[in-house]
């Protein structure tokens, strides 16, 4: 029994001038799957996220969302087709209220709403991420984790087919990290399809069904989490060559 493929990356390549940031990358994400995209710093993970969301254009290769090629579309069209994301460096809309920040994710994207309906959905999402009390406040007062929560609520507002979380857990303290992991767990329980770029290995172990490991722009492993993390090549990529 094979589950339907949501996202398919086919020999994706991205060059910045002479630098090969992503080299001939292939992987798939199936429905309801949580995929971890990991690798040492500079291995090209965030570039992959940017390629999928349309923030960057591929140099060659293609990316398909449910059979439809999306890699030649602008970011706003990709968002309308059902891919939402959070950013590595949190991007809040500072002059909008907390609830308007959330609504912004659900007005123009994949699943569209407006008016009272939008407000209800946004309140519901804020409750889910734990920000209900601050809904009508300005964003100035938000702490770092609250900003991250807000960004997640915004990404969920469009009810996307695929959610991209770019180091969403980075920078949180241990207590916050626990809350964060639980939150993503609840998304997983809902059956969301997610790609997770993450450095926190505990999170990868507990959250992901599968992981793809990158090093210097190339995929070096792809498979079930525990097994993949034992792969000698993966260990070498993280810790360096023991013979060197």
């Amino acid at each position: 029994m094979s589950k339907p493929v949501v996202l398919k990356v086919n020999s994706a390549t991205k060059r910045f001038g002479g630098l090969l940031a992503v080299n001939n990358l292939d992987f798939e994400v199936t429905e309801h799957e949580v995929l971890g995209l990991i690798g040492p710093n500079g291995s090209g993970k965030t570039t992959v996220m940017n390629l999928i969301s349309g923030a960057l254009k591929l140099s060659s290769g293609e990316i398909r969302l449910e059979e439809k090629i999306v890699s030649d579309l602008p970011a706003y069209k990709i968002s309308q087709l059902g891919i939402s994301r959070t950013f590595q460096l949190v991007k809040i809309l500072p002059t909008l209220s907390v609830i308007d920040n959330v609504i912004s994710g659900g007005v123009f994207g994949y699943h569209r709403m407006w008016g009272e309906n939008a407000e209800e959905t946004a309140l519901h999402l804020l409750k889910k991420v734990g920000l209900a009390a601050l809904a009508f406040k300005p964003t100035e007062q938000l702490t770092y984790i609250d900003q991250k929560r807000l960004e997640l609520a915004r990404a969920l507002a469009g009810n996307p087919k695929l959610l991209l979380l770019d180091e969403w857990l980075a920078g949180l303290n241990p207590t916050e990290l626990q809350i964060g992991i639980e939150l993503i767990h609840s998304l997983r329980a809902e059956g969301r399809t997610i790609i997770l770029v993450e450095h926190v290995m505990d999170a990868i172990r507990s959250l992901c069904d599968r992981c793809v490991v990158m090093s210097s722009g190339v995929k070096i492993a792809d498979g079930e989490v525990a097994e993949t993390l034992k792969n000698p090549e993966v260990i070498r990529a993280y810790l360096g060559d023991s013979d060197a």
């Binding site: 706003y76 991007k91 809309l93 007005v107 994949y110």
Partner: peptide
């Protein structure tokens, strides 16, 4: 929606694109 879109664009054009605004 147009006015709302303009406020989002005024805040951050990258976010605007990623929530589906042309």
């Amino acid at each position: 929606r147009l006015g709302f879109a303009m406020r989002i664009i005024g805040n951050d054009e990258t976010v605007a694109a990623h929530v589906g605004i042309d």
